[in-house]
Amino acid sequence: MSQTGVGVEGLPPARPGEGAPRRALAPLRREPAGRGRAWLSRRSVQQNLAGYVFLIPWLVGFFALTLGPMLASFYLSLTDFELFTPPEWLGFDNYVRLFTDDRRYLRALRVTFTYVLLSVPLKLAFALGIALLLNRGLRGLGLYRSVYYLPSLLGGSVAIAIMWRQVFSREGLVNQILALVGIEGPSWISDPSYALSTLVALAVWQFGAPMVIFLAGLKQIPQELYDAAAVDGAGKLSKFARITVPLLTPIIFFNLLMQMIGAYQAFTSAFVVSGGSGGPADATLFYTLYLYEEGFTNFEMGYASAMAWVLLAIIALSSAVAFLSARHWVHYSDV
């Protein structure tokens, strides 16, 4: 799914009130003071009814398209299921096979982890670096921001993946430029040792969206803090290290989480650049690519379901680690 994003620091600012209306949540709920405002004043039969009527589409979607399929997927992951024959119970064999008897799977894991570990930090470094440069009150901020943001908007498309294939082909743009300075570039896309790095480069090229979020975060830092620090004789460097960075850590954390979750699920770029194979020599065999191949090319749907659940576990675990580590480096305060 392409959408991600939740204001981490501001999940729901306050839970919508439930039960007794004038409880602690009063400031947010602003209950009407008087009586007789029919349905608005308290939870009534009409409110219950209206609530559920408005919620019907979501409830149907939640049970039929999210919760139901998740449970079904777990059941299927415990079976041998090839779509046109009934599932056969296997227990945890699929999971055992993944980790002990499938070298391509282990390869896919390694490729995916490498991709996440390279692309996410690089992307965030560019996003933060350019955001800091842009936050100096330069003229033309809007124009720069748009130009740097544009690739994020286009980057997920097949057209851009095709373009990337061209840019890095043996006679493509990159090698043409290298040739100008007398270097004979390799055949990036078809060389197993370079293919993955071209996909990392494509991800990094799309640093614009986190950059825009960083910029918004930088604008939130109160000027008074810098002024006060200046009065105390703080230099540029110490202002940066003691004000900018700490106050930005919640945004850094948010971007890190979002980009990481997205990177684990990367699919289109690898599919198009490798022609659907994950090649050369499985060098770009992303997790999702292998999952697609097992599920929808080989119709090994039980096995692919097991892969889907392991992916879910990996993403959940990585997020949990991020959240735990956040206690030590993310600075939440109202300064």
Partner: peptide
């Protein structure tokens, strides 16, 4: 304001980060 709203809301938030692959098959 309706019954079990908090529960549904929490479940809704939980699905935001769910990878598409978990329900695809």
């Amino acid at each position: 304001d309706f019954k079990f709203k908090r529960l549904w809301f929490a479940l809704m938030l939980g699905t935001i980060m769910l990878p598409a692959h978990a329900t695809l098959i």
